[in-house]
C-alpha cells in the first residue's frame, strides 16, 4: 500500500518535473510579474528615508527584509489549481481523469510542488540582489528560523492550494471559477500583508484580519523567517495553520463529493 503510494508520488513528480522544464521560460515570467511586494518595498523605503529614517519602528533595512520575505513567500505559495480544474471541466478533460483510480488532487499537488522546485534558482538570485541592494538587510537571524519557516511556508502553501482547489471545484456549477479565484489576488494585497506589515494596521482592522486564513498564508511565515517570533509564537502560528488546513480539507472533501454528484447528473 505504502509502496504503491510512494511509487505513484515518485512517478508523478518525475513526469511533472519534465513537464515544467518545458515551461521554464513561462515560470520565470510569472515569477518576475509578481513584483508588487518589491514595489511596496521601494515605496516604504522612500517613506522611511523621507521621515527621518524610520516609520512605525521599521527602517529601510527592516522594510527590505520584510518585503523580500513577502516576495519569497508569495513565490512559494503560488497556486493555479482553480484555473486548471476550470480548464479540465470546460474542455471535458476531467472525464478521462475520473476514470483513473486516483483522486485528481494528487496529480495537481504534484504539479504544483515540482513547479516550486524550478523556482528556487531565481528565488535565490533575486533575494541575493535584494539583500545587497539595501545596506544592513538581514533576512533571517539563524538557521533554526529558516527551518521553522520552511515548515510554515509548506503549511501556507497547503492553505493557498486548497483555497484555490476548492474554488476550482466550483467549476462543477459555474464557469466563473477562475474569476472567483482571482479575487484572492485582489484581496491578498491588504489581507496577507503584501501592501504593508500588518503591525502598521489600525488595531481594529488587525483584530478582524487575524480571524481569517490570509495572514497565515504570508504575514506570519514572514514573521517567522525575519526572526520576529520565537518558539511559542512559531508553534501558535503552526497550530492555527494546521487548523485552517483541516477546515479546508473537510470543505474540499464535501465539495468534491457534491461536485461529482453534480457532474454525474449533468455531465460535461
Amino acid at each position: 500500500m505504502i509502496r504503491h503510494a510512494a511509487r505513484k508520488a515518485r512517478v508523478l513528480f518525475t513526469v511533472w518535473f519534465a513537464h515544467m522544464l518545458v515551461y521554464r521560460a513561462e515560470i520565470i515570467i510569472w515569477m518576475l510579474s509578481g513584483s508588487i511586494p518589491l514595489i511596496m518595498m521601494a515605496v516604504w523605503i522612500g517613506k522611511a528615508s523621507s521621515s527621518g529614517g524610520s516609520v512605525g519602528g521599521f527602517t529601510a533595512a527592516t522594510f527590505a527584509a520584510y518585503f523580500l520575505a513577502v516576495w519569497l513567500t508569495n513565490q512559494c505559495i503560488v497556486a493555479w489549481a482553480a484555473w486548471e480544474l476550470d480548464r479540465l471541466v470546460r474542455e471535458g478533460l476531467l472525464s478521462p481523469r475520473l476514470l483513473r483510480p486516483l483522486d485528481p488532487i494528487w496529480n495537481e499537488l504534484a504539479a504544483h510542488v515540482t513547479e516550486k522546485v524550478l523556482r528556487i534558482p531565481l528565488m535565490i538570485a533575486i533575494l541575493f540582489v535584494g539583500v545587497h541592494l539595501v545596506p544592513g538587510t538581514q533576512l533571517t537571524p539563524d538557521i533554526p528560523h529558516v527551518l521553522a519557516y520552511t515548515v510554515c511556508v509548506g503549511f501556507a502553501f497547503g492553505i493557498r492550494f486548497l483555497l484555490s482547489y476548492c474554488t476550482g471545484l466550483l467549476s462543477f456549477w459555474t464557469t466563473q471559477a477562475t474569476a472567483i479565484d482571482e479575487l484572492y489576488y485582489v484581496v491578498a494585497g491588504f489581507l496577507t500583508g503584501a501592501f504593508a506589515p500588518l503591525s502598521l494596521y489600525p488595531a481594529s482592522v488587525r483584530a478582524v484580519i487575524d480571524w481569517l486564513p490570509f495572514p497565515y498564508i504570508v504575514y506570519y511565515p514572514v514573521q517567522v523567517l525575519n526572526g520576529n517570533l520565537a518558539g511559542g509564537g512559531i508553534l501558535r502560528v503552526l497550530a492555527v495553520q494546521a487548523l485552517w488546513l483541516s477546515v479546508l480539507i473537510l470543505i474540499r472533501g464535501m465539495l468534491w463529493r457534491r461536485g461529482l454528484r453534480q457532474y454525474g447528473a449533468v455531465g460535461a
Binding site: H4, R7, K8, R10, V11, L12, P101, L102
Partner: peptide
C-alpha cells in the same frame, strides 16, 4: 508510466 503507477 503515469498510468502504470496509478493503476499499480
Amino acid at each position: 508510466l503515469v498510468n502504470q503507477a496509478i493503476y499499480e
